[in-house]
Amino acid sequence: MNPANAHHAGHAPLSPLIHLIDDDAAVRDSLALLIGTVGLRVQAWPDPQAFIERFDRQGIGAIVLDVRMPGISGLTVLETLVAQGVDQPVIMLTGHGTVEMCRRAFKAGAAEFLEKPVNDEQLLEALQNAVRLHVRSRERHQADRDARERYAQLSEREREVLGLIVAGLTNKEIGRALGLSPRTVETHRANLFGKLEVDSLARLIRHYAALTDGG
C-alpha cells in the first residue's frame, strides 16, 4: 500500500511527519518515496476530508496539498486548516498555477506554492524549511507557556516587585514605592528569581517583561 511508510518505519516516532494529500495514487506513492529519501516520515491521504478529520494536529511536521482534487479544492482545504488553527506549514502543489490561485494560496497562509511536476530539490528544501519553522514555532510556544505557568506561581507582592524591577527601579526605590524595607524587597527579589528559574536580570526581563505589561 504505502512502500514509503513501510520502508522508513524504523525512524523514531517523534521525527517530523509529512502529510501528503493527493487523489492520484501514482503521484502519492512517488512523492512519498521521494520525501522518504531525506528521512522524513510520510503519511499519505487520498481523501482530503478524511485527512481534515483524522490527522494528528499535535505532531511536528508539514502538509503537502494538491490544489486540484475532485470534490474539494486544495485551497478550500488550506482555508479550513487555517481557520481551525492548524499550525503545521502547508505546501501547495498545482499542475496549472495561475497568478490568482497563487495569490489566494499565500493570502490564506500557504508556506510555499510549487508547480507540478515538481523539482525534488525544491520540494525537499521547502519541506525541510517548513519542518524547521514548525519546530521553532512550537518551541517558542512551549517557552511562552512555561513562562506563563511560572509567573502564575508568584504572590501578589512578588508580582508588584517584578513589575517595578522590569520598570528599572532599584531595591531602595521599590521599597520606598511599596512602603517596604530594602531588606524585605531583597527577599522578594530572591524568591521571584527562584520561582521564575532565572539567574540574571537580563534573562528576567527578556522572558517576563511581556507578562508584567498585562498586569
Binding site: D24, A26, S30, L33, L34, G95, H96
Partner: peptide, 21 residues
C-alpha cells in the same frame, strides 16, 4: 495539462527518488 501533469509528476518524483536511493 492536468492529465499529463499527474503522470509526469509521478515520473519525475520516482526517478528523482531512485537517483537519491
Amino acid at each position: 495539462a492536468h492529465e499529463l501533469n499527474q503522470p509526469l509528476t509521478a515520473v519525475m518524483a520516482s526517478t528523482q527518488a531512485a537517483r537519491r536511493l
